[in-house]
């Protein structure tokens, strides 16, 4: 592949632009992007804060109304943008604020994970969890365990990940 062409295209489209601070150094903790629902997991993460629990700094949370809105495309896009791990998290079965968003999402991710794995993506990099608004401690352990798990994996070489 002619990488210079690719870079040209990316530059032209503004995929690479300014450099305003932030954690960019690749040697640091593996970047995790977490897509979470507004009602359970986001509140659970907030509770970890109000309870002053501590966890790894590498997670970046993107809030959505419901796991039903968390499109598998987000996961692929996160890998493309250099994430080493992606977490999708929402309300426990039966607790969905919108009744069934988490159920639909679970079905889709069941198939999507199989597909990703089959196409050569290390599925250990995609985590899915149910974390309720009262489970600040679970949020902490899921993030910490996921971070540690990713650290042990070989650097991602799959087709979606940025080399």
């Amino acid at each position: 592949m002619e990488n210079n062409i690719v870079e040209d295209v990316q530059n032209a489209r503004g995929d690479k632009e300014y450099s305003a601070g932030g954690a960019k150094d690749k040697d640091k903790e593996p970047r995790i992007i977490a897509f979470v629902c507004n009602w359970c997991t986001y509140n659970g993460a907030d509770l970890a804060g109000t309870s002053r629990m501590k966890y790894a700094e590498n997670v970046r949370v993107i809030k959505l109304p419901c796991t039903g809105r968390i499109d598998p495309l987000f996961v692929v896009e996160a890998f493309k943008k250099g994430a080493k791990g992606v977490l999708v998290s929402g309300c426990h079965p039966g607790d969905c604020h919108y009744t069934s968003g988490n159920y639909h999402s679970r079905r889709k991710y069941t198939a999507f994970r199989d597909l990703l794995s089959y196409l050569g993506v290390d599925i250990n990099r995609v985590e899915f969890s149910w974390i309720s608004a009262s489970e600040g401690n679970k949020w902490v352990s899921v993030i910490n365990e996921f971070t540690n798990k990713i650290k042990l994996l070989p650097d991602n070489s799959d087709i979606f990940s940025k080399k």
Binding site: G49, K54, Y55, E57
Partner: peptide
Amino acid sequence: EQVSWVHEDKEKATEKAIDL
């Protein structure tokens, strides 16, 4: 809730805050 209260390393916390 998701930065200053859950992290201790000021450097890393600041970087995360900038990212968010």
